[in-house]
Design a binder for these strands. Structure first.
Lengths: 216, 216
DNA sequence: TCTCATTTTTAGATTTGCCTAAATTATTTT
DNA sequence: AAAATAATTTAGGCAAATCTAAAAATGAGA
């Protein structure tokens, strides 16, 4: 297997960037990974070459990298662990949603399938983590049946329930908290408009009631 | 601070061996640490020299190594984390006592004081872990008021409550479990005598009742 | 006390993961 | 289409943590 924290971090970065760039087939530049990981580009190149040898990554020189099926499975398992631990930290240990990212970043590398599965059971098999992100199951499958919308989709009179924050960033989450924004709380269009737009645009809501015709 | 998994492992080994060799002032040979850690002696020597630079270890060439006050504090914090995580795994996630050592070995390196303290609260500030070992508090202090005795102290008619197993070893713990030995269960002298002595001698009991005069 | 077996350290090499600087390939501009 | 610019990889080096083999110190027995 030959996993390591660094290798896993590169796999996770590749997964995250690949998703944001249009899915599993997208090529992710090594520079882009380097920025995301806080290392220099040549380090990523060499790591990506190692990960290719190990069968987790496909690398096309000067084009970029993307995950193999095995790599994607590994990435989804890391995402699963990260989000389950974040859920544990918030729901059981009483941490604020802005405090848990760095700790979960460490916990996600703990290697024990049984631990993850028991944690999942213990938490009641949650489908969504404290930031509103879906938690994949042991097979890497998501079951997120929410329909999420940006607040910009709301019109006067609409009410939305805060359902996700798009970036897991302590500063942003603290700010949101200080404005009273918490997962599951209900907000009118007007109240949301009163938030600074840098904050508002990071939110996603589920519609509670809308004035719009034919809205889901 | 400059902690790392390997450095912490060496500190913990030095603590454990130092305790078993007669307390904080005992010199522990690098060979002995090497055996305990599963590495070769020269690796320990060089690590010990690094740890001395960092102020956690005192090294007398050809004599051995021992922890400084700062090193001991670090070691006790690792022991605390290890034993709290083991408690969590057994009491909350339902693991068997023979399954948790390796996972706790990973979890003990997670770096977050707040996490440890919250976990401690969450578990109800336990004083004893699933193997009967005392859990130091945040200041490194133990509060273990049990009086533990080897089964060899028991005489016919005595009853003892299983209170600790002296080695955290999966094979041993599984065997004990298969003989029905579990923490807190009560055993007569006779029942204990029926166990293989390799198992029995790893146990410590609290006396429930004794025939002996003047026994505590 | 001197020699010799044992223990421990030093020396030098290896692997992993990172870096900077230089070379290479791709892309954009004119 | 050629040249300039930007992105990426290669080359070569460094630090951490390990190893093996060789040298040095300890201490036990004669």
């Amino acid at each position: 297997m030959a996993k390591s924290k660094q290798r896993e971090d590169h796999i996770k970065a590749l997964y995250a960037l690949g998703e944001s760039l249009g899915g599993p087939k997208a090529w992710v530049s090594t520079n882009c990974m380097a920025d995301h990981l806080g290392v220099k580009a040549p380090s990523v190149t060499s790591m990506v070459q190692v990960l290719q040898e190990l069968g987790w990554v496909e690398h096309r020189p000067y084009r970029g990298a993307r995950l193999t099926v095995a790599g994607r499975r590994l990435a989804l398992n890391l995402v699963r662990k990260h989000r389950l631990w974040e859920t544990f930290l918030v729901e059981r240990l009483g941490f604020g949603w802005e405090e848990v990212h760095d700790i979960a970043e460490q916990l996600e590398h703990i290697d024990s399938i049984k631990l993850v599965d028991r944690l999942d059971d213990y938490l009641g098999r949650p489908k969504i983590d404290p930031h509103g992100d879906p938690i994949p199951d042991g097979k890497g499958l998501f079951s997120d049946d929410r329909s999420l919308r940006p607040p910009s989709d709301m019109v006067a009179g609409d009410v939305g329930r805060i359902a996700a924050v798009q970036r897991d960033d302590a500063a942003l989450l603290s700010l949101l908290k200080s404005h009273g924004v918490a997962m599951g709380t209900e907000w009118t269009h007007e109240a949301l408009q009163a938030l600074p737009h840098e904050l508002r645009e990071q939110l996603l809501v589920e519609m509670v009631s809308t004035m719009k015709q034919g809205a889901s």
